[in-house]
C-alpha cells in the first residue's frame, strides 16, 4: 500500500508543479528535502536511543513480567475465551505491556502469537485489534524526539494531552466496535 501512496505523492506532486510552472521550486524542494531527511533522522537518534536504553533497564528489572501479572485478571474479563488458555493470556499482556512502554517492534511477536492463540474466537481477536488501534503509550518518545529536534520550547508538553486523547480514542474505538458488531449480528439473525 505504501508503494501506491509514495507513487501517488511523487507523480501528482511533480506533475502539478510542472503544469503550474513551479519546476524550479520543486527541484529545490527535492534536493532540500533529501538533505533535511538525513539531518532529521540523525537528530532523532539521541532521544529515541536514550529512551530505548531507559526502557531496557526497566525490562531487565522484570517490569514486563510484573505488569503482566497485574494485568492478567483484567485480561480474563475482557477476553473470556482465554480463561483456560494461559498462553494466549501471556501473549496478550506482553503485547499490551510492550505497546504501553513503547517497545515498538517488541510488541509484534506477542501480538502475532495472541491472535494465533485466539483464532477460534473472532470476537476476541477483533477486540484485541481494536484495543491495539488506540496506541496507548506511557511516554510517546518518538513524538518527543521530533519536537526536540525541531526546536520546541518544551518537547514533553504533549504527554498529558496525548494520554487524554489516547483514552478517548480507546473508548471510542471499543464503543464503535461494540455498536458495529451488534449491528452485524442483528443483520445475520434476521436473514
Amino acid at each position: 500500500m505504501l508503494n501506491y501512496v509514495w507513487m501517488f505523492l511523487m507523480i501528482v506532486g511533480i506533475a502539478v508543479s510542472v503544469v503550474s510552472g513551479r519546476t524550479e521550486e520543486i527541484m529545490d524542494t527535492i534536493i532540500e528535502s533529501a538533505n533535511n531527511a538525513v539531518t532529521f533522522s540523525i537528530g532523532l537518534i539521541g532521544v529515541v536511543a536514550l529512551w530505548c536504553g531507559v526502557i531496557k533497564i526497566l525490562e531487565d528489572a522484570g517490569a514486563v513480567e510484573w505488569l503482566s501479572k497485574k494485568l492478567k485478571p483484567v485480561v480474563t474479563r475482557i477476553f473470556p475465551s482465554t480463561k483456560n488458555n494461559p498462553k494466549a493470556q501471556n501473549a496478550i499482556v506482553t503485547n499490551i505491556t510492550a505497546n504501553f512502554l513503547g517497545l515498538g517492534n517488541g510488541a509484534t511477536p506477542s501480538g502475532i502469537e495472541a491472535v494465533a492463540e485466539m483464532k477460534e474466537n473472532v470476537r476476541d481477536v477483533c477486540l484485541f485489534l481494536v484495543i491495539n488501534s488506540a496506541g496507548i503509550q506511557l511516554i510517546p518518545s518518538t513524538v518527543i524526539a521530533i519536537r526536540a529536534e525541531l526546536g520546541a520550547a518544551n518537547p514533553t508538553d504533549i504527554i498529558l494531552p496525548t494520554w487524554i486523547v489516547s483514552v478517548i480514542s480507546l473508548i471510542a474505538a471499543v464503543a464503535i466496535y461494540a455498536v458495529c458488531s451488534s449491528f452485524c449480528r442483528d443483520r445475520r439473525h434476521t436473514k
Partner: peptide, 30 residues
C-alpha cells in the same frame, strides 16, 4: 537498549528520505 534504538532509526533513514521528499514535493506543488 540504546543500541537497539540507534539501529531502529538508522534502518529507517532510507524510507524517511524517500517519504520526506515525497511529502515535500506534494506540499510544494501547490
Amino acid at each position: 537498549g540504546a543500541q537497539e534504538g540507534v539501529s531502529t532509526i538508522v534502518k529507517l533513514v532510507p524510507s524517511l528520505i524517500g517519504l520526506i521528499v515525497a511529502v515535500g514535493v506534494f506540499r510544494n506543488s501547490g
